[in-house]
Design a protein around this nucleic acid. Sequence first.
DNA 1: TTGACGACATACCGGCGAGTATGTTCGCCT
DNA 2: AGGCGAACATACTCGCCGGTATGTCGTCAA
Lengths: 212, 212
Amino acid sequence: MTADDDTAAHLPAPGRRDILEAAATAFTRNGYAATTIDDIAREMGATKGRVYHYYRAKADVFLDIVTAGMQELIDGIEPIAGNGGLDPATRLWRMAHHHAGLMMTRNSFQRVAMRAVEMRRLGEAPAQQQALETVIAMRDRYEQIFADVIDEGREAGEFREVDSRLATKPLLGALNWISLWYDPQRGDYNTRQRLADEYADFIVGGLRRSPR
Amino acid sequence: MTADDDTAAHLPAPGRRDILEAAATAFTRNGYAATTIDDIAREMGATKGRVYHYYRAKADVFLDIVTAGMQELIDGIEPIAGNGGLDPATRLWRMAHHHAGLMMTRNSFQRVAMRAVEMRRLGEAPAQQQALETVIAMRDRYEQIFADVIDEGREAGEFREVDSRLATKPLLGALNWISLWYDPQRGDYNTRQRLADEYADFIVGGLRRSPR
DNA sequence: TTGACGACATACCGGCGAGTATGTTCGCCT
DNA sequence: AGGCGAACATACTCGCCGGTATGTCGTCAA
């Protein structure tokens, strides 16, 4: 981090930033295949030329959104997961809380990112196909971070005896689903916090050993 | 319902059955917008003519799949929810278990159904748009069935103090997410049971009042 | 001052795919 | 035995959309 990047270390070039934002909302609204390049341009108050000046294909725009979204997730979670000062249950709670927050505040990006993971093919171009698999790899890394914390919690006796890798499925499923029903228009900071609290409670509760 | 329908009371005409099945797998593979009518036909070993003989538009095929999927869900859950002989926690456990099972065994239909709920528009035709809202209404009814059981469980002191309607979100989110990652090719009956057990445990655990 | 290049807009092309129009082949009823 | 309609297949149309080619306007360096 030198003087002034716009956000993270991973640089979305200044001209591309607007395109990604517009495309994310457009994709969120109508899905990938159904949204036109003209839709994206109109969302920015521009025309096709602008988009194709920065991107060579529609799929490239999509992939940039997805990787940005995944990177946001990873960047947010890693420091929490690695904080050895906290017991695993607390860490998991905060990870879930943060993930839930991103699903709401960064809804358009995250929703597009979620959709990418369920795609098998993106087009005929093998380069794009490989990029998609890179995204899948990021998702796997991300799941593994959760799985590791769950393992720690199980070994510490806080959690039930579960296959940690498998346990991430309902956990992240519940959280990811937020991106599908949450309306980013509605809801202030407080209601978002309350929602994230509720989700984090639910998730940690689901892994805790039974009351008796 | 006269003499012999093929399955439930809600009759998918004999000729349509194959189309729905083929279309469901095609939609699951490539998404709604990206799949061609020819794709669907090829999946059946037929041609466009066959599809358009039974359906007037692509969206109609889609809607039939979705409503069938939703109906499967409702039909399976209602008798469990209404079984007063069981305490709410047990009923909820079985409901979650059954829902999880459907997400696996009827993966293609359910996955398409899930995708429909996240759609805003389906096309320009207002008739289809209204049909989509009918589906949303079915989804709401379905959520309400879960919410009612959660309320009973809360009043009986089995569950935490939660907004029942809101609590269905993480619950069904976790379950619905199965349809996105589960591969119907893999997995026998036993592994599916184990998975559904795990999910049901997780969910009921997430709602139980804390250990202390 | 000019000319070269970045940052777009505009005009255009080509293919694909939803929907339609038109066969063709059966079984069934009379 | 003949014709009639259901159940498809085949052939065709036509608009839309991804991508490209070309034009235009500013800005900055020499």
